[in-house]
Amino acid sequence: MLKPVDIFMVGVGGQGTILASKVLAAAARAVGYDVKMSEIHGMAQRGGSVVTQVRLGEKVHSPLISEGEADVILAFEQLEALRWLSYLKPGGIVIINNQKIYPVPVLAGAAEYPADIIEQIKGKVNDVLVLDALQQAIQCGNAKAANVVLLGAMARELPIKEEIWREALAATVPPKFLEINNAAFTAGYNSRS
Rank of each mutant, 00 (worst) to 15 (best):
residue 83 R to A: 00
residue 83 R to D: 00
residue 83 R to F: 01
residue 84 W to K: 11
residue 84 W to D: 00
residue 84 W to A: 04
residue 85 L to Q: 10
residue 85 L to S: 04
residue 86 S to G: 07
residue 86 S to K: 07
residue 86 S to V: 02
residue 87 Y to D: 05
residue 88 L to N: 03
residue 89 K to L: 06
residue 90 P to Q: 13
residue 91 G to S: 05
residue 91 G to D: 13
residue 91 G to F: 06
residue 91 G to C: 09
residue 92 G to T: 08
residue 92 G to C: 08
residue 92 G to H: 01
residue 92 G to W: 00
residue 92 G to Y: 01
residue 93 I to T: 14
residue 93 I to D: 08
residue 93 I to C: 11
residue 93 I to S: 13
residue 94 V to M: 07
residue 94 V to D: 03
residue 95 I to P: 04
residue 95 I to R: 06
residue 96 I to C: 14
residue 96 I to T: 13
residue 96 I to F: 10
residue 96 I to W: 13
residue 97 N to E: 07
residue 97 N to D: 08
residue 97 N to L: 03
residue 98 N to Q: 13
residue 98 N to Y: 03
residue 98 N to P: 09
residue 99 Q to D: 07
residue 99 Q to V: 12
residue 99 Q to T: 12
residue 99 Q to G: 10
residue 100 K to G: 01
residue 100 K to Q: 14
residue 100 K to D: 09
residue 101 I to M: 12
residue 101 I to Y: 12
residue 102 Y to M: 09
residue 102 Y to F: 03
residue 102 Y to D: 06
residue 102 Y to V: 11
residue 103 P to I: 08
residue 103 P to N: 05
residue 104 V to W: 10
residue 105 P to M: 12
residue 105 P to G: 12
residue 105 P to S: 12
residue 106 V to A: 09
residue 106 V to E: 00
residue 106 V to H: 06
residue 106 V to S: 07
residue 107 L to D: 09
residue 107 L to V: 05
residue 107 L to R: 14
residue 107 L to Q: 12
residue 108 A to W: 09
residue 108 A to Q: 15
residue 108 A to G: 14
residue 109 G to C: 12
residue 109 G to A: 13
residue 110 A to W: 08
residue 110 A to R: 15
residue 111 A to Y: 07
residue 112 E to N: 11
residue 112 E to V: 09
residue 112 E to D: 14
residue 112 E to Y: 08
residue 113 Y to Q: 08
residue 113 Y to R: 04
residue 113 Y to N: 03
residue 113 Y to V: 02
residue 113 Y to C: 05
residue 113 Y to L: 02
residue 114 P to S: 15
residue 114 P to R: 10
residue 114 P to K: 05
residue 114 P to T: 04
residue 114 P to M: 05
residue 115 A to N: 15
residue 115 A to M: 11
residue 115 A to W: 02
residue 115 A to F: 15
residue 116 D to P: 07
residue 116 D to Y: 13
residue 116 D to V: 09
residue 116 D to I: 09
residue 117 I to E: 04
residue 118 I to V: 15
residue 119 E to K: 15
residue 119 E to S: 15
residue 119 E to Q: 15
residue 120 Q to I: 03
residue 120 Q to V: 00
residue 120 Q to E: 07
residue 121 I to N: 11
residue 121 I to W: 10
residue 121 I to T: 06
residue 122 K to R: 15
residue 122 K to T: 00
residue 123 G to S: 11
residue 123 G to I: 10
residue 123 G to C: 05
residue 123 G to F: 06
residue 123 G to R: 01
residue 124 K to I: 01
residue 124 K to E: 01
residue 124 K to R: 15
residue 124 K to V: 00
residue 124 K to P: 03
residue 125 V to I: 11
residue 125 V to F: 03
residue 126 N to M: 11
residue 126 N to Q: 14
residue 126 N to D: 14
residue 126 N to F: 06
